[in-house]
Amino acid sequence: TEDARKEAKKIIDNGGSPDEAAKFIKKYGLSEDQARELVKRAL
C-alpha cells in the first residue's frame, strides 16, 4: 500500500536499514517478500 511505502521511506530516510523497514511494514499485512519489494521501490 501507499502508506506502507511512505513508512518504509521514512524509516530509511531516518537512518534505518532496509531490513528494519521491511520488518516494520510487515505489520500492514504484507508477506516478507512483498515487504522487501516495497522497501526496494521506496529507495
Rank of each mutant, 00 (worst) to 15 (best):
A22Q: 09
P18L: 14
E2Q: 09
D33C: 11
A8C: 09
D19I: 06
A22V: 15
L43E: 06
E32N: 03
T1L: 15
Y28Q: 04
D33F: 07
K26M: 15
L30A: 00
I12D: 01
G15M: 05
G15K: 03
R41I: 13
R36E: 08
K6G: 06
G16C: 15
K10E: 08
D3K: 14
E37K: 05
D33S: 11
R36C: 13
D19M: 07
S17L: 06
N14V: 04
E20V: 05
D33N: 08
P18W: 11
V39Q: 01
R41A: 14
A4Q: 05
L38S: 00
K6A: 12
E7Y: 06
E32I: 10
E20I: 04
A8T: 04
D13F: 10
S31W: 00
A22F: 13
A8M: 08
R41D: 11
A22K: 10
D13P: 02
A42C: 12
D19Q: 09
D33I: 10
K27G: 08
A22R: 06
K23I: 12
V39P: 00
E20G: 02
K40D: 13
A35I: 13
E32K: 00
K23R: 12
A8P: 01
K6N: 09
I11N: 03
A8K: 02
A42F: 14
N14Q: 12
K9E: 06
A42I: 15
V39G: 01
K40P: 01
A22P: 06
L38R: 00
G29T: 00
R5N: 05
E32C: 11
S17D: 09
G16E: 04
I11V: 06
K26D: 13
V39W: 00
R36D: 05
P18T: 07
A22M: 14
K27D: 11
K9M: 13
I12L: 15
S31F: 00
L43Q: 07
A21Y: 14
K26E: 15
L43G: 04
K23A: 15
I25N: 02
N14L: 10
D19Y: 10
S17I: 05
G29H: 02
L30N: 01
K6T: 11
E32V: 06
V39I: 11
R36A: 11
D3H: 13
Y28K: 00
A42Y: 14
I25H: 03
K9V: 08
E7W: 11
E2N: 09
A4C: 08
T1P: 11
V39T: 01
G15D: 04
Q34L: 09
S31A: 04
Y28D: 06
S31K: 00
K10Y: 09
F24W: 11
A21V: 13
E7Q: 11
V39M: 04
E2K: 08
I11E: 01
R41N: 11
V39N: 00
A8R: 03
D33G: 05
N14K: 09
E37G: 00
D13S: 10
A42Q: 07
K9C: 12
K26Q: 15
K23P: 00
K9I: 12
D13A: 13
V39D: 02
E7R: 06
Q34K: 05
S31V: 00
K27M: 09
D19T: 09
K27S: 07
P18D: 08
K10I: 07
S31E: 02
S31N: 10
R5M: 15
K10P: 01
K26A: 12
K10V: 07
A22C: 14
G15I: 05
K27Q: 12
A21S: 04
L30E: 03
L43M: 13
Q34R: 01
A42N: 02
R5F: 15
